[in-house]
């Protein structure tokens, strides 16, 4: 079966410093996959290579079998790659509804329309609003993002990504900075994601990882240490020593 996402020999170095060294990675269609590793393991760099924010020094990236290594970010998004950011990357002066409408509008290829009012596409606004209802953001729809709580802003991150209807969704620490009482909503949203959407999550919160992921890949110093089912990973003494020993925030 063709992987939803695959990297072959992916490598990235900044001068003499190698941050990603020959990563072979496969994300199956509909996967619930987690990428874990201690701070500085190169997890976010890996995401940035996949999305095209960074250009790899060597190796290739494939989306549903197609080599997208040379394609710009926007072209990869058009091919079904969506992401959230570790640090909220939102339109903070726009309303929650506008934030999500922007994504839906781009997905439908209407983002560049010049001579029809944005409001004239009621279907686009309605689709965005339905997403807000699903993510329990409806009551904040007309508030500027900067005014809502950080935990709810994390949900806006998710809503924007979902507005793209991605086939592959990359979640970069979706619960980062969220009080533990509020992570439940985020997990709930993640569990309700469509079954055919392949999801890769980077997360420090091991409770969240164990509850969500069916497969775990451990990244250490830019290379894959091991990969397997959660139980295998937890039982692996190297993982216990390297990761759970020092980087456990949960």
């Amino acid at each position: 079966m063709t992987s939803a996402l695959e990297t072959r020999g992916l490598r990235k170095s900044f001068g003499a410093m190698v941050v990603t060294s020959g990563v072979d990675f496969r994300l199956a269609p509909g996967a619930r996959h987690a990428l874990i590793g201690p701070n500085g393991a190169g997890k976010t760099t890996f995401i940035n290579l996949i999305t095209g924010r960074l250009t790899p020094s060597a190796g290739s990236i494939h989306l549903a079998g197609e080599d997208v290594t040379a394609l710009p970010q926007s072209a990869r998004v058009k091919r079904g790659l969506g992401r959230t950011f570790q640090i909220n990357t939102l339109f903070s002066n726009l309303t929650v509804l506008e934030n999500v409408t922007m994504a839906v509008s781009e997905r439908l290829g209407r983002g560049g329309d010049k001579f029809r009012f944005a409001g004239s596409r009621r279907d686009i606004v309605e689709e965005a609003y339905e997403l807000l209802i699903r993510l329990r953001l409806a009551e904040d729809a007309l508030r500027p993002v900067r005014e809502i709580a950080y935990g709810r802003q994390r949900l806006v991150e998710m809503a924007i990504a979902l507005g793209l209807k991605p086939r592959v969704l990359l979640l970069d620490e979706p619960a980062a900075g969220v009080p533990s009482a509020e992570t439940a909503v985020i997990l709930e949203v993640m569990e309700a994601l469509p079954a055919d959407m392949a999801v890769l999550i980077i997360e420090h919160d091991m409770d969240l990882v164990l509850r969500f992921a069916k497969t775990i890949t451990v990244l250490v110093r830019g290379a894959v240490l091991t990969e397997g089912a959660p139980a295998e990973i937890l039982a692996d003494p190297r993982v216990r020593e390297i990761y759970l020993g020092e980087g456990h925030h949960g």
Partner: peptide
């Protein structure tokens, strides 16, 4: 407001 986000939603 946020160029990185515009890239990430596929805007040219």
């Amino acid at each position: 407001e946020n160029t990185a986000r515009m890239h990430a939603i596929g805007a040219p």
